[in-house]
Nucleic acid binder design. Structure first.
Length: 828
RNA sequence: GCGAGAGUGGCGGAAUCGGCAGACGCGCCAGAUUUAGGAUCUGGUGGGGAGACCUGUGGGGGUUCGAGUCCCCCCUCUCGCACCA
């Protein structure tokens, strides 16, 4: 018999054939069928950089694509959109260097991203594509700015803000976390400037409390709690004697009022306005030098230095402890921060490690006032931080820390020198940027009327000659005289536009709403569409936005809720973070390290299906893993094995015949694979889902010779192809058609319902069990399913090897776990 | 220091309502096949032992018929935050 040579697996041919077909079918258009439940699957809003996508980005886009496809097959209307967070610096920097307009640069970059996303067949509904730098989008970003403004949540203030000398841009606290610029990782410095802020602090409690109900990674929730940093304590006023004879109030914030009788000094931040007024003449020079030294140090130098040794200088002034009436020295030290609490503290060296370290350095007395469990611990060597029973605390002696705090705060309120206070680490969101490539802040400054909203939106970015910010930190917009000069909308008098643009995080704080109805012209979104699709059912992206985008978007959503614009208070019900794909060298992929792998080269060599499958298979979804090209070769081999299996054994099948018997083993393996793959995909365990598919194909290959022509095999292959369709769309479609499963040319494997397993197929007639003696496996046996424990026990004891090992002894004990094992404990 | 998570073959990783450790893949070894091919096929692959077996999930204790999984102590690593009063 002569073998007819089979077509080889030619992924290029297959890809080029099905792409236009699916395009015609409108496979990726958003579901609109009445009566179906919605599923909104969203990827983090990407910033289109010039480098294009690496395979690392695919670790985000392939899994969301797989889930979206599966949900569609399960009968959901699916919304899976894509768009561009296009405003931002790198584009602007590029424009500065080349003179090419940022919008053209953006266009070039987004074209690349879109092309690459199509290359890996990420099934986005491109009819809903949005671009945050397009006036049709940013007019609504401006609209929401005004919503915040109107609600008293946007304001201007002059204060010290973070400045990145490298990027030449101001940064919000979130963007400067850890003293480093979020984009270039260089140290940030301080600069005093007038800026726009959003009052996110007035939402701090809600942002904290609502974390509770979110299905988000614990780590992200913890980071947000930490960032919000709510603490409960008291604000207490110490009176400080100034050299001019006046008594000046110096409020301090503390969470440990209970330790106040142990306050042996006070510390005030070098930036504190009071420093200049309370320092005595003889201390002036030393204090001034210290302040200057602190100012010149970068924040991180300051932190690093004082970790080793805390420094400070005495101001010469004394403060009065409002409880004890005691007079304590006031020091200036840079371990006290100006932007937390009141910028001044009462220092209790006995019960605070930092104060302890400082007191030891400068020989300040340490007085123990809290005894944990009623037993004084001794505090000369080490501070006691735990709560306990108050001692040396006058009328409050004997109280527990908890009751003491309540009692002592009440006392302060009664006497008028203090009050209960809640403090937060989070600060208001500094949102203005002195940059060109952003959404202009729609405010007009009028000498008569002040800051007036410009409701004539959009305020379009004017054309400029150069995009560079100038040395004073002024925006390039400040140089466009014709644009700058305008009329006050209130009084009609001459006025000037605000020259700031908004940080990119403003644009991404509402984009998930725009996708619900991206073409609305008269409003940011259609409330009906938003009601149907939102909140987002599944949100996937990297962990690096924990306290930036994810907290800002939550804030805007709550503001919109308060304004009655949306009916939910949280935008993202379920959040998952994908891990990173590192270069083959285990390092972060970067151009400079030369270890970047692009989807382009992988698709060229192995095809989109093999790449997608390897991305899913490489390891756990959330883990950081090194790229390995041998690995993708493995998934490629797997696909070829599938190809051969289907065309060799499946094609011969034909229609089911009456006489075909169901093969119970085949049915069992199919059912358990369907179950395993379905459950693993829902649980984001794509790696084990792929492993189960490989295992099943291995099984089929080993059995296929015996099953050729059996309609059970054909039915099995049919279901297998449907099961694989979300992961490997091309080969699944091709084989589906080749095996003749399509009802018409317009049919598609992607339009099939998600396959369900039959519970009864999982029940086998016999079960394999292990027989242990003293916990060690000594024999294997097969018993009928549904055997009683007694029967299993009998069968186990009758095993030849077991009889031999027992050598006539009676078993002392026999443990039977049906379906698993029998453990025999021999008698002596 | 605080918070989150993790330590399993040569490698990525499976298996945690306690029940055959190492699924699946890579790599490696042997064989088959091909003129050659990122090819394919078959078998093997934690360590020790010729073998029956012994041993093995960061280390040490414990609970249990049985522990990678539960409890106690210790060590290491990754990530995030870090003088927040």
């Amino acid at each position: 018999m002569e073998e007819i040579p089979m077509d080889p697996y030619d992924f290029r041919d297959i890809e080029s054939r099905w792409k236009p077909h699916w395009q015609r079918l409108g496979l990726y258009l958003t579901g609109t069928e009445a009566g179906k439940r919605p599923f909104y699957c969203l990827d983090f809003f990407p910033y289109p950089s010039g480098a294009g996508l690496s395979v690392g980005h695919c670790k985000n886009y392939v899994p969301t694509d797989v889930i979206s496809r599966k949900r569609k097959m399960e009968g959901y209307n699916v919304l899976h959109p894509m768009g561009w967070d296009a405003f931002g610096q790198p584009t602007e920097e590029y424009a500065i260097r080349t003179g090419i307009h940022p919008s053209l640069v953006t266009r070039k970059h987004t074209d690349t991203y879109r092309r690459q996303m199509k290359l890996i067949e990420a099934g986005y509904d491109w009819e809903r594509e949005i671009d945050s730098s397009d006036p049709s989008y940013y007019r609504w970003t401006q609209h929401f700015f005004l919503l915040l403004f109107d609600r008293g949540l946007a304001y201007q203030d002059e204060s010290d803000i973070w400045w990145c000398p490298e990027c030449k841009i101001v940064l919000s606290n979130e963007e400067a976390a850890g003293g480093q610029c979020w984009r270039c990782e260089k140290d940030v410095t301080r600069k005093r400037m007038n800026q726009w802020y959003f009052r996110i602090t007035s939402y701090a409690d809600r942002l904290l409390d609502d974390l509770e109900g979110l299905d988000w990674p614990e780590g992200i929730k913890a980071m947000q709690r930490n960032w919000i940093g709510r603490s409960e304590g008291a604000r207490l006023t110490f009176m400080v004697g100034a050299p001019d004879g006046q008594d000046l109030p110096m409020p301090v914030y503390t969470t440990r009022v209970d330790t106040i009788y142990g306050a042996t000094f006070c510390v005030i931040s070098p930036e504190h306005p009071l420093v200049g007024r309370i320092t005595t003449r003889d201390r002036m020079a030393e204090v001034a030098a210290y302040i200057e030294g602190a100012r010149l140090k970068s924040n991180r130098e300051r932190m690093a230095a004082s970790e080793k040794q805390k420094t400070g200088v005495f101001t010469g002034a004394f403060a009065i402890n409002p409880y004890s009436g005691e007079r304590v020295p006031v020091w200036v030290a840079d371990y006290v921060l100006m932007d937390y609490g009141t910028g001044a503290i009462m220092a209790v060296p006995a019960h605070d490690e930092r104060d302890h370290q400082f007191a030891r350095s400068y020989g300040i007395p340490i007085i123990e006032v809290v005894a944990p469990g009623g037993v004084p611990q001794g505090v000369e060597e080490k501070a006691t931080v735990a709560d306990g029973v108050l001692i040396n605390s006058g009328p409050f002696d004997g109280l527990g820390s908890d009751r003491a705090r309540a009692r002592m705060t009440a006392f302060a309120e009664e006497k008028g020198f203090g009050t209960r206070e809640v403090n937060y680490r989070i600060h208001d969101w500094m949102v203005s940027r002195q940059r060109y490539w952003g959404a202009p802040i729609p405010i007009i400054h009028c000498e008569r009327c002040g800051a007036v909203p410009d409701r004539n939106l959009p305020v379009v970015l004017p054309e400029v000659d150069s995009y560079e910010p100038d040395d004073t930190g002024r925006s390039p917009l400040a140089r466009v005289e014709a644009w700058l000069r305008t009329k006050c909308p209130e009084c009609g008098g001459p006025a000037r536009r605000d020259t700031n643009t908004m940080a990119g995080f403003a644009c991404s704080s509402w984009y998930f709403l725009r996708f619900a109805s991206p073409h609305e012209e008269d409003r940011p979104f259609d409330p009906e569409a938003v009601r149907y699709w939102l909140p987002v059912d599944l949100y996937v992206g990297g962990a690096e936005h924990a306290v930036m985008h994810l907290i800002y978007a939550r804030f805007w959503t709550k503001v919109m809720y308060d304004a009655g614009l949306v009916s939910f208070t949280e935008p993202f019900s379920v959040l998952r973070n994908q891990g990173m794909i590192l270069g083959a060298d285990g390092q972060k992929m970067s151009k400079s390290k030369g270890n970047v792998v692009t989807p382009d080269e992988m698709v060229e060599r192995y095809g989109a299906d093999a790449l997608r499958l390897y991305i899913l298979f490489i390891g756990p979804f959330g883990a950081d893993l090194a790229w390995n090209e041998e690995g993708i070769a493995g998934t490629f081999r797997f696909l070829r094995r599938l190809w051969r299996l289907c065309l060799e054994s499946g094609a011969a099948g034909g229609e089911a015949e009456e006489g075909d018997r169901r093969d119970p083993e085949l049915a069992f393996h199919l059912a358990s694979t369907l179950r395993k793959v379905s459950e693993d995909m829902d649980g984001f365990q794509f790696n084990t889902a792929v492993a189960a598919l490989m295992e099943f194909v291995n099984f089929l290959v080993s059995r296929s010779a015996g099953l050729e022509g059996n309609s059970g095999l054909r039915e099995t292959l049919k279901q297998l192809l449907v099961l694989m369709a979300p992961m490997t769309p091309f080969i699944s479609e091709e084989l589906w058609h080749r095996l003749g499963f399509a009802e018409s040319d317009e049919d598609s494997v992607h339009l099939q319902p998600w396959p369900l397993w039959r519970e009864q197929d999982l029940a086998l007639e016999r079960m394999e069990m292990v027989v242990q003696v003293a916990g060690k496996v000594r024999a294997r046996m097969s018993v009928p399913s549904g055997s009683t424990e007694e029967e299993i026990r009998g069968a186990a004891l009758a095993q030849e090897r077991i009889v031999e090992l027992l050598g006539g002894r009676e078993p002392a004990r026999v443990i039977v776990v049906p379906g698993r094992l029998v453990n025999i404990i021999p008698g002596r």
